[in-house]
């Protein structure tokens, strides 16, 4: 867990997109929606990220539909949730620090 944070933007959003079971195409679509089209993950980027997160046990295979090859669904694990929570905490700290500085400058 030591060098897991900061998360890349891709990992952060993928973890968000697999709170409920989601497949590759769905993950790309959801992230694009969440970011108003700013982050559109390339298939290779997503494939690499999913495999590395499966190995690290941040996400797990939720279901596999043998009929249609497209439906391999992934879902976040408790380890993944923990990592995500820590990252949000870190990001909040960054924002809080920035706000404090802003307020100090305003008072001057």
């Amino acid at each position: 867990m030591d060098n897991s944070t900061p998360l890349t933007e891709a990992l952060f959003y993928i973890l968000l997109a697999v709170r409920t079971p989601n497949h590759g195409y769905g993950i790309i679509q959801d992230i694009s929606e969440m970011t108003d089209g700013r982050v559109v993950l390339g298939p290779g980027t997503l494939y690499g990220a999913i495999n590395s997160m499966l190995t690290k046990d941040w996400i797990r295979l939720y279901s596999e539909d043998k009929e249609s090859r497209k439906k391999k669904e992934y879902m976040i694990t408790s380890t993944g949730r923990e990592i995500f929570k820590n990252e949000v905490k870190r990001l909040n700290e960054l924002v809080e620090s920035a706000k404090k500085m802003d307020e100090q400058e305003m008072r001057k």
């Binding site: 891709a10 559109v40 993950l41 390339g42 298939p43 980027t45």
Partner: peptide, 23 residues
Amino acid sequence: YLRKKAVDGPFEMYTDVESKIDL
């Protein structure tokens, strides 16, 4: 070798700096 129909939108396999460097 991979391909995608141009009408289905832009096609870039690796979209962030981290994964491009990995490749």
